Amino acid sequence: MPAKDRKIAFMGFRSVGKSSLIIQYVENQFVDSYDPTIENTFAKHTKVGGQEYNLLVVDTAGQDEYSVIPQSYFININGYVLVYSVNSQKSFDVVKHVYNKIIDMKGRMTVPIVLVGNKKDLRIERVISEEEGKHLAESWKVPFLEASAKENSSVKDIFDTVLNTIKQKENGETPEKSNCTLS
């Protein structure tokens, strides 16, 4: 079975750790220094569920609620990872704006999106609870993970999850419902 080409974009407010998550995954190292990204693309060959992928990961410049998102972020992108930092309310608010812009451009049913709360190692500084992140993801009907690029916690899971979500959408499947019940 030939490798499939997939392109995913990481989006979110500045300094939430988008680059750190990507570099941790692609190069297996944690970059601590903050250097604002203009835009970078990283390539990695990976295998998920028996399928090989040639993955291109677009590390976008940080967005805010006023950003005009370049058209290129909507063309030929197979999936999105929306990242906020658990120690930043602002980044949590911005991720909602980014989500709405993606949905406006692409339509709700077609877009594989994964929501990620990064920097879960910052336990004391945390302002966004895991429950808040889960609740937001459930309202969007998208997978949710908390991760730490620093501790390399759940980093690979983010990429596996977005690739599986893309595959489900391509196959016309709906992601499995989480086992929460609405009362």
Rank of each mutant, 00 (worst) to 15 (best):
residue 76 N to S: 14
residue 84 Y to L: 05
residue 98 V to Q: 05
residue 106 K to H: 01
residue 87 N to Y: 00
residue 117 G to W: 04
residue 76 N to D: 14
residue 75 I to W: 00
residue 87 N to C: 12
residue 82 L to C: 04
residue 104 D to M: 06
residue 111 V to L: 05
residue 84 Y to K: 01
residue 97 H to V: 06
residue 122 L to H: 13
residue 142 V to R: 06
residue 115 L to W: 11
residue 117 G to F: 03
residue 84 Y to I: 00
residue 107 G to K: 07
residue 107 G to F: 10
residue 114 V to M: 09
residue 115 L to P: 10
residue 93 D to M: 06
residue 133 G to C: 13
residue 92 F to D: 02
residue 104 D to E: 15
residue 109 M to C: 09
residue 106 K to F: 02
residue 144 F to D: 08
residue 81 V to Y: 01
residue 126 R to M: 04
residue 134 K to Y: 11
residue 86 V to D: 06
residue 128 I to P: 06
residue 84 Y to Q: 01
residue 88 S to G: 13
residue 99 Y to I: 03
residue 82 L to A: 05
residue 85 S to D: 13
residue 128 I to D: 07
residue 117 G to R: 07
residue 107 G to Q: 06
residue 80 Y to D: 02
residue 129 S to V: 05
residue 114 V to D: 06
residue 128 I to G: 09
residue 85 S to G: 13
residue 145 L to S: 08
residue 137 A to M: 12
residue 77 I to S: 01
residue 89 Q to M: 14
residue 88 S to V: 13
residue 143 P to I: 11
residue 72 S to D: 10
residue 88 S to P: 09
residue 76 N to P: 00
residue 110 T to R: 12
residue 115 L to E: 07
residue 83 V to C: 08
residue 111 V to T: 15
residue 73 Y to I: 02
residue 78 N to C: 09
residue 116 V to E: 08
residue 77 I to D: 01
residue 145 L to A: 12
residue 99 Y to R: 15
residue 91 S to F: 11
residue 98 V to D: 02
residue 138 E to L: 15
residue 145 L to G: 12
residue 105 M to R: 14
residue 78 N to V: 01
residue 102 I to S: 04
residue 92 F to P: 00
residue 114 V to C: 06
